[in-house]
């Protein structure tokens, strides 16, 4: 057989070529997370804020991953996986940052080997926080955890979520925390793509067939009650806004409204008039008070890791 058929050569030729989603290759290319908290900023607040932004992305990514092998077309298979990977990448850096600031300590599992990396950071902070934290300690907005329904509802969800997060990350590039600024700089083009993708489908489905129009409007209506919460500021956010670290969620309403005003009329859709879901004693996702949807999502995600708490993978 010819030398050029040699499979070992093929293996040797497959170098890391930058095409891989971050964290999926052999060379980890994460943003450096070990910078100290900026002067005058409470470390616990900063860690909590990192968890909030991480959990929005992690839970949203897990939800989008439910589409894998179920998408309406192969191109959508590729795009949805891409978007889920981008969000997962954002979550991983933010979880590592939260871990570096001490957020993982209370969730550590006895007997679990925490591979220390050169910088002394426990390599598995991201996994301790993702897999060994109960839902009451998740800080994501409830919008991130709701069932995504059909493809129309998923696109309505993605349009709102990406528009909101893009506005957030665009502003966060100027954060006093260098790690958040770096995460945001990387995230902005990813979220701009997500918003483009979602807006394209909202247009096609809204102004496609009679059936798709009905489904698109229904999808938007289903997502709507969870939108109000994303503009509310938690006390941690308020304190960090003053310190120049965080973004005021109230400021993002204008971004989302502008995007919806641009897309919905052209898509022949109506902005829903539906009341927001009520909070529990004034507390929502940012306080760890979630909908019933989050528990099962985490149960699936965490099941194998928790069955072997001492194992690394």
């Amino acid at each position: 057989m010819d030398a050029d058929d040699n499979v070992y050569d093929a293996l040797a030729a497959a170098d890391h070529d930058g095409r891989w989603a971050h964290g999926a290759g052999f060379d980890e290319s994460v943003v450096e997370v070990t910078a100290p908290a900026p002067d005058g900023v409470d470390t616990e607040d900063l860690a909590a804020y990192c968890l909030m932004l991480a959990d929005d992305a992690l839970v949203g990514s897990q939800r989008l991953s439910e589409w894998a092998t179920h998408a309406p077309e192969l191109e959508e298979e590729v795009a949805l996986a891409n978007i889920a990977l981008d969000l997962l990448g954002q979550a991983r850096v933010l979880l590592a940052r939260a871990g570096h600031l001490g957020a993982a300590e209370r969730f550590r599992v006895a007997g679990r080997a925490s591979e220390a990396t050169g910088d002394g950071r426990a390599h598995d902070d991201e996994d301790v926080l993702a897999y060994f934290r109960d839902d009451r300690f998740f800080r994501n907005v409830t919008l991130a955890e709701i069932d995504l329904g059909d493809f129309a509802q998923t696109m309505a969800w993605m349009l709102v979520f990406s528009s909101w997060r893009l506005g957030l990350m665009t502003r966060l590039r100027g954060s006093a925390d260098p790690v958040l600024a770096a995460v945001a700089t990387k995230a902005v083009p990813e979220l701009a793509y997500q918003r483009e993708y979602a807006a394209g489908w909202v247009l096609r489905l809204g102004d496609g067939t009679e059936l798709s129009h009905v489904r698109m409007q229904a999808g938007l209506d289903a997502v709507w009650p969870f939108v109000e919460e994303i503009f509310g500021a938690h006390a941690v956010e308020t304190r960090l806004v003053e310190a120049g670290v965080a973004v005021d969620p109230a400021a993002l309403r204008a971004d989302v409204d502008a995007d919806l005003e641009q897309v919905l009329p052209v898509a022949t859709l109506t902005r829903p008039e539906r009341p927001a879901v009520g909070l529990v004693g004034g507390r929502g996702g940012r306080d760890g008070v979630h909908t019933e949807a989050l528990g099962p999502v985490l149960a699936v995600m965490q099941s194998l890791a928790r069955a072997h708490p001492e194992a690394t993978w």
């Binding site: 996986a81 996994d127 993978w313």
Partner: peptide, 14 residues
Amino acid sequence: LRAPSLRRKAILLA
């Protein structure tokens, strides 16, 4: 959905 680490999840999804 059940990948036991976030790195393995990213690899599998990709």
